[in-house]
Design a binder for these strands. Sequence first.
DNA 1: AACAAGGTTCCAAATAGTGGAATTTTGACT
DNA 2: AGTCAAAATTCCACTATTTGGAACCTTGTT
Lengths: 261, 261
Amino acid sequence: MSKAREDGGTGTLGKAIAVLEVVANAKNPMRFTDLLAEIDQPRGTLHRQISNLIDEGLLQVNPDNSYGLGLRLLKFASNAWAGNQFREIAEPHLRSLHEKAGETIHLGVLQGIEVIYLDKVESRQSVRMYSQIGNASPAFCTGIGKAAFSLLPDEEMYKRAQRIVFNRYTANTLPDADAFLAEIAKIRASGNAFDREEHENGIHCVAAPVGAVHRAFYAGISVTAPVYRVGKEQLEGWADAVRETAAAIEDDMRLKLGPRG
Amino acid sequence: MSKAREDGGTGTLGKAIAVLEVVANAKNPMRFTDLLAEIDQPRGTLHRQISNLIDEGLLQVNPDNSYGLGLRLLKFASNAWAGNQFREIAEPHLRSLHEKAGETIHLGVLQGIEVIYLDKVESRQSVRMYSQIGNASPAFCTGIGKAAFSLLPDEEMYKRAQRIVFNRYTANTLPDADAFLAEIAKIRASGNAFDREEHENGIHCVAAPVGAVHRAFYAGISVTAPVYRVGKEQLEGWADAVRETAAAIEDDMRLKLGPRG
DNA sequence: AACAAGGTTCCAAATAGTGGAATTTTGACT
DNA sequence: AGTCAAAATTCCACTATTTGGAACCTTGTT
């Protein structure tokens, strides 16, 4: 278990959320002592933080004394999703892009150095929604992630890039910050990001950034397809359509949310 | 706008979450002053709390300066759902109940005086998942809610019952605590709860409680159907199957999670 | 039955949150 | 454009809340 902790940001609340984050990212069930090892806080303190989180319904105790995220979070997320203006505006554009490309469309926003998937349009609703929406993936090896990153002001971009841990998911995964930043430069120039089997073997995608930079809002959309069905050329052929859809979403936001949207 | 506030439970964290709750429950977009009116805290304090929530990604500012829940909640919820042992164990049982009844099956857990929907099995996946899973409904006018309530120890039940606001959703909605508690008594005797168009006109359901009382875990399952398609008798005909499924889930939990499950 | 590991409680000291008031920004109306 | 009221933000002495070390229980194991 990597001891890659980020100290909670803002005071007491930050520390509490940091506990949730550790529980969320844990690969195997964590009991009290496991959390204690991961989060460097004194026993008593951590214990009370956990108690509070449980009282608030943000954390749960499993029968084996391990912890899981609390179900109150579901209610909040349901509201967060339903009430999200950006998602609402983007949705019809995603649908029309899906009609053009015929492959799966994703909408994701940058949250720190991760991409959180906000919406998805696919032909056959085979998989449960929750298996994708709300999922977080590393930004550095996904099309949307790299696209969104390319919108960041330089200073912010370097700061976040430093926090990235360059796990090797496939042979194509970008190995380090240099490769990553070079890639971002290309994306800024072309307006399109690609994920060429960098996160998952056999899956590639074209993406484009969508954002409202002055509001520190960084997102992206993508067309994702399996390599066996869609070749490199065909994928690249969608690049313009993806960029145009991204632009249409931005226009629509300005229209519906005012010039500051 | 009802000024029905519950003061955050546990210290600083509770107050912060109370803000999220207000934003989540708000019908129309809330700006700073609106929140200030709803949450009785001094300006400065509320302002900092909001700032902290935004820093943590739990709250967002919309272009019109109103607040919405932050997208970090989606990631947490996605984990909460995927990692939920109860949901995982219940799922196959829900499917087999669906095969028997042919109508929509819900799984929900009691959270305070609300039911949060954890899973759903229906024939045609017509509606987006998020529109149901994670949704919260009042416990007092839903089958699952009343079923779960019937598991509560008396003291706890009375305490929670006092907090219920008996909104009238339909002509059949239970009007007050007396009617509600009488209903609970019937459910305890029979093992089944019904929602006879109490929450939504034209929709009724049979439910049964599922729980692990010594772990303070109160849930329920239901078969829901439109009145025009499924009559009262047919609905009542499923009561046994629903109860048996509930029992099967409880057994399975004991088996897989140990006797304390 | 005895032990160790995991989990819980306590309380003086320190830190982080509070809240009233002053300041700046926003936006509505001449 | 200019003026003004309402909304949003910042500030800082005060205080309540969190902190963290150590002692104490509880659970499961040899």
